[in-house]
Design a protein around this nucleic acid. Sequence first.
DNA 1: CTCATTTCCGAAACCGGTTTCGTTAACCTC
DNA 2: GAGGTTAACGAAACCGGTTTCGGAAATGAG
Lengths: 334, 334
Amino acid sequence: MNIKKIAQLAGVSVSTVSKIINDYPDISEDTKLRVRKIMSETGYIPSNSAQTLATKRSHLIGVIFAGKLNIDMTHPFFVEVVNAFKKQMGILGYDLLFFSNEKFQGRGDYPARCRHFHVDGCILLSGEELEPSIRELDESDIPCIGVDLTLSGPLSAHINTDNREMAELVARHLAELGYSELGYLGSRESSEMSREREAGYREALASRGLPVREEWFIHADSFFEDAGYEAAKRLLTGGALPQALWAASDQLAIGALRAFREAGLCVPGDIALVGCDDIEASRYVQPALTTIRQDKETIGKYAALMLFDLINEQNASAAQLVQPELIVRGSCGT
Amino acid sequence: MNIKKIAQLAGVSVSTVSKIINDYPDISEDTKLRVRKIMSETGYIPSNSAQTLATKRSHLIGVIFAGKLNIDMTHPFFVEVVNAFKKQMGILGYDLLFFSNEKFQGRGDYPARCRHFHVDGCILLSGEELEPSIRELDESDIPCIGVDLTLSGPLSAHINTDNREMAELVARHLAELGYSELGYLGSRESSEMSREREAGYREALASRGLPVREEWFIHADSFFEDAGYEAAKRLLTGGALPQALWAASDQLAIGALRAFREAGLCVPGDIALVGCDDIEASRYVQPALTTIRQDKETIGKYAALMLFDLINEQNASAAQLVQPELIVRGSCGT
DNA sequence: CTCATTTCCGAAACCGGTTTCGTTAACCTC
DNA sequence: GAGGTTAACGAAACCGGTTTCGGAAATGAG
């Protein structure tokens, strides 16, 4: 069932049917009604490929997990963001195309595949260092929105939680609880996000007159649990422990928690612990993790709205900060 | 940059370029090399829309979270399955299209949207009762693979963990630990999966001469945590408790755990608890949950391979069972 | 050297839509 | 009732590829 058959059945031209599909004003209501009836009776659906070919708009958004390593759909933070993004994009009339990042199987890099599928825009998710093809995409004329990832291309924007405010919230909370010797567990990966969190934390300590001791600032190999475990073990073999530790991701915190427990340390009795992100698991560990919530719903939704503006060349702001929230659970005592 | 420009630059016809793209044998190696060089130098990528239009193959797979309520990308079990599926599909040369299930925003139901995008096949994920349009899709000529969801259409197949074997593993383990009064926490939702697990469990108890007491078989409103919490509270207000309880999902188990703890009960001291699925959170709760692991990697990978066979009209088996595995942690004692 | 094959390539129809521009008939206006 | 508008529709070019079929040149056989 194609547009030609509909035209025949209705006794009108192909162009008329097309105009009815797109609700052009120069077709009479009578004809529209009559043809629409036939369309629904025959279950006719216009082909997206044909429409894309003719209009250069696919109503498809590419989803790219941009990290060099280990970031995929199962990532507890990004999956929530993407889910909210998908929801909002659905409302705006778009569906999502997930690129298989299986090393490009001879199907070209990201910019190539965006053009191949004619996606109207892209969402890039990452907290890691980037592959070169991501930069290329950023600088292309394909609208891009980055989450936890700064973009600067002509049709790009980005959104993330206010990392410095996160650090501020943590420092304030720990200080209020009376802790003064504060440590930091970050990731070695150099990303905007990493740098901001750590820098913000250092400032927050300094502005409160708290000591910034380098041996209490440690860096794991990634943001994942096992890396947190290893890093925390290194901290334990060092000298005196800090009274409290902020981990730059909940997964790092959970790994550290395991290391502390294995060492016979009690959290928060011997050392207080704060996570970051508020992923699902942080509610389940024992003690439940005090953490900084990123508002994934809002990030995903705004990402969609910003990308929509970018696609329609409206006044999209280049960057957007979302405010974090402190979630107090048990890992810092009271 | 389109095929015509490439043809001009290379001094050959459009058909020749097309044949080179598709590696037809009736073009000399010399010409292929020469033209391919030009293609890569100009960064030419053929348009998927045009190819789909001409060939009726899009190399796109539709992903549908088919549940009536609340099943989306954040579902801890399905997201792992989809991730493995995506990986394997990438190897096979396909990308994934996630349909926004925002109540179809006037964009037609699932079959319509599959035709709209010309997807080559679909993966349906669900453990719930189905919408009518899913049945329609199953019966259409679009290749479909169901996960935790029985399909019977002409080009359909399905895959899931052996639910009866799961029940058998649980019963065996609990019996070996000396528990004889066993309860079950399932979901009210009528799905193949639910029925099989419960029926298998009843049989496993009966075959061991263990009592099957109806007041110990309770049903939550869904498979989610809060429903488990509520259902467990109902169990607590009843008479004597069973010695051990199998929850048909880890989320239900975690909810029940919360209810027990609030009631001052100790797990496994006062009541042993077994989960199901082995989602991430089951490792983090206290006590860590003894559970039945579903091999999500294998399910996702096989789903991809089966769907590929279906698409290429090869000998796809209509159904596939994956074996479960008992994961012993702390929630049943020793 | 002649005739039959192969090898290699191109013309053209086609996939299913969109959009510009022109045409016709009906409607005003004075 | 002549001339100017407007409303409603269609012809045809176009989007970027694929594929069938046919033809010319090169090759092989006898």
